[in-house]
Computed example of a mutant assay.
Amino acid sequence: MITPHGTAGSYYTRIDAHRYRPTAHAGGAWGPDEQHFSPLGGLVAHAMEQHLAARPDGAGLVLARISYDILGRLALDACEIRVETVRPGRTIELLEATVRIAGRSVVRARAWLLAAHDTAAVAGGPAGRLTPPERLGTWPMGELWPGGYIASLDVRPVSPPQPGRATVWVSTPLALVAGEPSGPLASYLALVDTANGIAVRQPPTEWLFPNVDLTVHLHRQPVAGWTGLDTTVAFGPTGQGLTSTVLHDVDGPVGHAQQILTVRPRSGPPADAPPSGPAAAGPSHGRH
């Protein structure tokens, strides 16, 4: 059991160049011995940023899309992240990261990076900022969800959350990795997966609906500090769901996030069925 002793200010501590150990603050909402995916998603982005920073030709590229596939259970244990350049380029580049826990691949992520240019003269898109977080009261999200990650958050609803619909601001006082700075993008992305827990359609005590992926598209690089989530959740009739979010920072919309869900009653089949082969790895209870 991982305890927060000595690591109260972060979600992870670094072990070596590629390995990190989660603190209790990374604890998941579906199970006490699992990681919440949200800080792990930020950690992957942090590793990608460091991969770029180590290359002299990495400057001038910005992340425009990142997609995560969650391959299996995210144990609250040391994780190894390896990043490689799949498609190099001066104006367009594709990175891939693999997260391994206990020797098993549990997350694969791909990020498209695009060259930064001055397009302020033609910039435009959806208008409207959310009510600033400093004007809003806090929501004790820990009353709905357990786990160290949810307990670490400052959550401020723009209006009272409804089944399948919520708009909230999320922030955290904790560092992503103890003793080292993370960029604004990684810090922002570390909070995005919270979206599937803010607008629940059914009580999580009665239904399981973990996401098996997360895809984020950005038309503007977000400012760190607060992650705004304008979220809608839909459940289909055959066990699938979709969490769709318009992403904001304090300056306005920055992009969109999508999460596909596997929906089942808690009394139904387990979320991680026995594998049918050595490579099979189903989704876990321990995420949202």
Rank of each mutant, 00 (worst) to 15 (best):
P39S: 11
P39I: 12
P39V: 12
P39D: 05
P39F: 09
L40H: 08
L40D: 10
L40V: 12
L40M: 13
G41A: 13
G42M: 03
G42D: 03
G42P: 04
G42H: 03
L43V: 01
L43Y: 01
V44A: 03
V44M: 03
V44H: 05
V44F: 01
V44K: 03
A45Q: 01
A45E: 00
A45T: 05
A45G: 00
A45I: 01
A45V: 10
H46F: 07
H46Q: 10
H46C: 01
H46V: 01
A47R: 02
A47I: 00
A47V: 00
A47P: 00
M48P: 06
M48A: 06
M48W: 05
M48Q: 14
M48H: 10
E49C: 11
E49N: 08
E49F: 11
E49K: 07
E49R: 12
Q50D: 10
Q50T: 06
Q50G: 09
H51Y: 00
H51C: 00
H51Q: 00
L52R: 05
L52D: 09
L52K: 01
L52N: 02
A53F: 04
A53H: 06
A53E: 10
A53I: 08
A53S: 12
A53V: 05
A53C: 05
A54H: 12
A54G: 14
R55N: 02
R55E: 06
R55L: 04
R55P: 06
R55C: 02
R55D: 08
P56M: 11
P56S: 14
P56L: 13
P56H: 12
P56C: 06
D57Y: 09
D57M: 10
D57E: 14
D57S: 12
D57V: 09
D57W: 10
G58T: 01
G58P: 01
G58C: 02
G58Q: 02
G58W: 00
A59N: 11
A59M: 11
G60I: 10
G60M: 14
G60A: 06
G60H: 12
G60C: 13
L61D: 03
L61K: 11
L61S: 04
V62S: 15
V62W: 14
L63E: 07
L63D: 07
L63P: 14
L63K: 11
A64Y: 15
A64W: 15
R65Y: 02
R65I: 03
R65L: 03
R65V: 05
I66Q: 08
I66P: 07
I66F: 07
S67Y: 02
S67E: 05
S67G: 09
S67W: 00
S67P: 00
Y68G: 04
Y68V: 04
Y68T: 07
Y68C: 04
D69P: 12
D69G: 14
I70L: 13
I70Q: 04
I70Y: 04
I70H: 05
I70T: 02
I70D: 01
I70A: 01
L71K: 10
L71M: 08
L71E: 10
G72H: 13
R73T: 15
R73S: 07
R73E: 10
L74A: 02
A75V: 15
A75Y: 12
A75P: 11
A75T: 15
